[in-house]
Design a protein around this nucleic acid. Structure first.
Lengths: 343, 343
DNA sequence: GGCTGGGCTGAAAGCGTTGTCAAAAACGCT
DNA sequence: AGCGTTTTTGACAACGCTTTCAGCCCAGCC
């Protein structure tokens, strides 16, 4: 059996209370000589406090969870990265899990709560079903929601201002790139991100007195390959020096660019293309993609920061952090090169 | 205060022992009627066992950690994904953390052990310093090492057979692509992966009676951009229909391809290029990269499987799992298209 | 009726901490 | 020396659970 506080106490010839005080840095409460004796006993025995016993009385584990819809790809990887860094900074460790569909995230959240070893949960939910709504509205643990809101349930959240990014990009395409016709390629038609982006795109067009033709709206699955296939099939109908494709993520934009290359169509001369998210793909596509930088890593870190704050201040009012995405102009849209363009 | 086992016991009019038996599925030990009564009390009260108390007596948390050198990019993302899936399957949850440098991973491992709330750790170490060696050789927790070995410390590990993949690829370049001159672009010259790949490449060349000229070996940092710059500068010296670039990862290979495109040099006709890892980049680069598929997700899942097994069988002999990477022929190397080529 | 044995249940002893409270020791003053 | 403080220390009760052990109850058997 591992060495316990009692062993240390015995060795140092003090009571366990004293050892506990030494461990918990209540320096003022224990005589310097005694402390030294205890500390060397700890050293010699290689004593480590038992986290369970401690958690049992303190009721905290210094563990927070991050639950994402998936772990695949750079998008989530960046969120995890930001979250992990912030968690460590705040003295917590990060438990990561993914829930592939609604039923799964339902059960995962449920299980998460059952285990009750976590101090809090940061969760990102692809689509909010009744079941999830139900679980979350009775959630006992501190939690924050990433990139979404649960109606009627007060909670902290950190969101991306999708509309802002999408309008900026649309305006850019219209004014700097002189686009007259827009093709919108989104993710699934139920996806909240896609809807927000589409909506903002429409609004920005309306502002400029233009309109998004409904036959120019496509709903795919955010994947390179499907966009590639679609573009291959539709390219001839699309091209024109005043046409721009607005894809709801970089992957799909990259697929469109690849299709254009396969058909020997020059991007951006014959077709302008823009993506969204500013993932690595955007920089690796040639021509490099004009896109909207979404601060993913920041979203992860802000979520954890909010969560840790909530853990220590259970009563404070819910807070909502909105992160601004930022237009990144590269080569694929054919705008005049600007001083701000990144590689 | 949360509802405890005592509340349930009181409500169901039984002792806590009985409730405990119900919770732990000792079905044969409790009368069906009593069990039903307890179960409904649990329901009504919304009781959840306290994981700390439970862990305190059972000495397990059902939590395993995955410690990686970094969390950035698809490579790690896939490992995490595989690990998470396997952990859930085995009834564990996954704690993820990254350690950016040796000192960091040293302290992280140390802290990990101090906290002692974890049942085990899967760790991937970029470079094994004395400090890390020291920590690991006194490690009390079950652990498995990903893609590496700690000399003199018996432990489980799961490795990628780098040499196999690199020889396959080299042989492919020589025979199917008729390359006569190879340019090797590696990561840092101390990186074990790079060294293994370089070594195998050399060996395969030797086998074919050829040699890797030392001026044709470059050590970069695994990044797209540096490879792009290097290729831009050296392209003229490299090109030739019998020259092939072997980059130690896909990112760098993609950088070389991009540089060729920028200089209007045809890949693979004027220069063959191959990558390593088979990350998403390989499929998104045009022409798509010939590369070596490294089963990252599998590495994550095997590591966790091994770890869980080790947790329940502390005494079994260390086991070492070797995963075979697999040659993936696409367009960038100019080989005759084969039936096995993927998109 | 007394005994044996099996099925269920409950009391209580931990598990390793922290925190409270009171006692002991040390100190500073008359 | 005696007294009031201030440090410093130790005993012990939680914390919520599992598990052992003993006991109760009832059936079945002699």
């Amino acid at each position: 059996m591992a060495v316990s506080i009692a062993d240390v106490a015995q060795r140092a010839n003090v009571s366990i209370s004293t050892v506990s005080r030494v461990i918990n840095r209540r320096d003022d409460l224990v005589n310097a000589r005694t402390r030294a004796r205890v500390e060397s006993a700890i050293q010699e025995l290689g004593y480590k406090p038992n986290a369970f016993a401690r958690g049992l009385v303190l009721r905290k584990s210094e563990l927070v969870a991050l639950v994402l819809p998936d772990l695949h790809g750079e998008f989530y990887s960046e969120i995890i990265r930001g979250a992990d860094a912030q968690a460590r900074e705040s003295g917590y460790n990060l438990v990561v899990s993914s829930a592939h569909d609604a039923a799964d995230s339902h059960s995962l959240l449920h299980a998460t709560q059952q285990r009750s070893i976590l101090d809090g949960v940061a969760v990102m939910i692809a689509d909010v079903t009744d079941g999830i709504h139900e679980v979350l509205s009775n959630f006992r643990l501190p939690f924050v929601v990433l990139d979404g809101d649960i109606d009627g349930v007060p909670h902290d959240s950190v969101c991306i201002n999708q509309r802002h990014g999408a309008s900026e990009l649309t305006r850019h395409l219209i004014t700097r790139c002189r686009a007259e016709r827009l093709i919108f390629i989104g993710g699934p038609s139920t996806n909240v991100d896609t809807l927000a982006r589409l909506d903002a795109c429409r609004a920005a067009l309306a502002e400029a007195g233009r309109k998004l033709d409904s036959s120019d709206i496509y709903h795919l699955d955010y994947e390179f390959e499907t966009a590639y296939q679609l573009a291959l099939a539709r390219m001839r109908e699309w091209i024109g020096p005043r046409t721009a494709v607005f894809a709801a993520n970089d992957e799909m934009a990259s697929g469109v660019v690849a299709a254009a290359a396969a058909l020997s169509i020059a991007v951006p001369r014959e077709l302008a293309v823009a993506g969204f998210d500013d993932t690595r793909v955007a920089r690796l596509t040639r021509p490099a993609l004009t896109t909207v930088h979404v601060p993913m890593s920041r979203m992860g870190s802000e979520a954890i920061k909010l969560l840790c704050d909530r853990i220590s201040h259970a009563q404070r009012a819910p807070r909502r952090i909105s992160l601004q995405p930022e237009l990144v102009v590269r080569e694929s849209c054919g705008a005049v090169a600007l001083a701000t363009s990144n590689v």
